[in-house]
Nucleic acid binder design. Structure first.
Lengths: 326, 326
DNA sequence: TTGTATGCGTTATCAG
DNA sequence: CTGATAACGCATACAA
């Protein structure tokens, strides 16, 4: 079933059918004839032929490090929600945390494969930069501020600052910190900076020896919480840079009968699914991951419409979710 | 840069270049010339033109009810892992739990859009059946046994049976059950059946009044656990049909100081991410979600290669993960 | 407003 | 083994 068949059946030219499908530069009489035939036959234009002509695929490539992550699946939910309404589809590329896959997909997607790319990367290197610069389609990043392309990121500094302030306002004075190394800008650097700045702004000395770091996992929280608890001057609250780390800390404290928040308060950042279901429910901050997906979709669509639009950096806010752990 | 340009530069015909790219029915001499030119220019064939000719898109449509679900993201991880090695891409369609979207995508994907569809549906209705039957591309289902197309599903009956047996072997005698309604075959019917059959096989009377149902959420677990605990003949173990339900039950028990597993044991099914991090860690069963994705990808690829291949039903096994909640 | 003719970049056919 | 050439299904410039 092609456009020509429809034209024949409706007694018009193929061009008329094409116009009916697109601009609509057509008389009412023919419009109605064509409509009837299309309805009867259930005809649908061939995407490939359209693509070959128009050079548009109506596809957005989404490159992710892994799919089974709470924040990432929320972002994708946002992207798909926005794109569903715009007649675009998601082409998903899972790099499985392999840096080379990321570069590979970036290259693969270039050749008239997708109209634009949303990159959810952990780190953007010089190599990324080189490849992205060479692409003919727009690319945007989510989850990290990038200087040479538009990006959407979260207010890590602000959230950490606000959370620290919340802790102080509840009367906690001796704060411990469990974070990650500073090669991770967003979590390792910005969140710690927010924590420290807030302390200093409130005239509370920042104690470097109460700042412990480890990986992005529960063991980090568990082990470093143990260390913190064995110090002569125990902290009365523990600020964890991520919910996962906080989970580990809570686990340690529960296991050792150290009452939360009576003996020591705990908080995380990120509002993971688990945060609300543990005992006690964890105080954390929501980063609006889904919204960042929605905005990312809008952003790439805008870039496709208008390739010359300027580089944007959109910082999303946060919301402190206070539960019973502080 | 088209195939014609390459042909000109290499001093051969476009057909020769095409053959070089495909069958390879070509002399060594020309092969080398073409190779050199392609390497120099970095030429890559146009996917759209290829698709228009070959009627193949090298795309697999994956229809899911929602993305931010643990089991579903694991399945997708499996699919993408398998497809990455096969030069196929994933076209993701998120129905957001909207039944009509599911039917819409099923239809949309038909027109030379994708080469095959993997459907991760919650329920397959007569309407699904009608549409799927009318499609010209293969469709398989994951997560549910379907009779008219190939499908991959989990051993819900067996897992429930085995878990119940485990409970009995640990000495628990008065088992309560919190599940979901029977419109859900896998969870609502099969798991309950496994539970009941096991009891009967061990000569333990099945008490209908200790079987409570509700939705797929924590509230169900919380509320029904409360009911169970207020019965005159309290159960000494609670079998929850899903981990999420179990989370709610554990929450209630912890909140009311009812010691797990001393006073009452709790178990779930599904091995969600949260299961291992709560206190006490939850005993559950792993369903090998990722593997079902891998197998699903293999299955749809096989169907594409060989459309006449018979309808298959693959049931994946399970593994009981015993933790401290029983 | 309408129709005709052309080309998008490939692959497949077929005669050499 | 090779090279013209005809589709594939559509959108658009142009002439009417």
């Amino acid at each position: 079933m092609t456009i020509a068949d429809i034209a024949k059946m409706a007694g018009v030219s193929p061009a008329a059918v094409s116009r009916y499908l697109n601009d609509g530069y057509i008389s009412d009489e023919k419009r109605e004839k064509i409509r009837a035939v299309i309805e009867k036959t259930g005809y649908v234009p061939s995407r490939q032929a359209q693509q070959l002509r128009t050079k548009r695929t109506k596809l957005i490539g989404v490159i992710i490090p892994k799919i089974d992550s709470y924040s990432i699946s929320c972002i994708i939910a946002g992207i798909s929600e926005q794109l569903n309404g715009e007649d675009y589809q998601i082409l998903l590329a899972n790099t499985d945390n392999d840096y080379n896959n990321e570069l590979k997909f970036l290259r693969t997607f270039n050749q008239d494969f997708v109209d634009g790319i949303i990159l959810i990367a952990t780190t953007v290197t010089g190599e990324h930069r080189k490849i992205i610069k060479s692409l003919k389609i727009p690319v945007i990043a989510i989850g990290q501020k990038v200087d040479f392309i538009s990006s959407i990121y979260h207010d890590d500094y602000g959230a950490a600052y606000a959370m620290t302030e919340r802790l102080l306002s509840k009367g906690y004075k001796k704060l411990g910190y469990i974070g990650v190394p500073d090669w991770d800008i967003a979590v390792g650097v910005d969140r710690l900076r927010g924590f420290r700045d807030c302390l200093e702004d409130h005239g509370i000395p920042f104690e470097q020896d109460k700042v412990l770091t480890g990986m992005f996992n529960m063991d980090n929280g568990y082990d470093n919480c143990k260390k913190l608890m064995s110090m002569k001057k125990r902290p009365d609250a523990i600020f964890c840079a991520t919910d996962t780390i906080a989970l580990g800390a809570v686990h340690y404290l529960n296991e050792h009968g150290i009452k939360i928040p009576d003996k020591v308060a705990v908080c995380g950042l990120g509002n993971g699914k688990t945060a609300g279901v543990i005992d006690p429910p964890l105080t954390t901050a929501d980063y609006f991951y889904k919204e960042s997906g929605v905005e990312g979709a809008k952003m790439i669509l805008e870039k496709i419409e208008n390739p010359k639009s300027p580089v944007l950096s959109l910082m999303l806010g946060f919301e402190i979710i206070e539960r019973r752990s502080i």
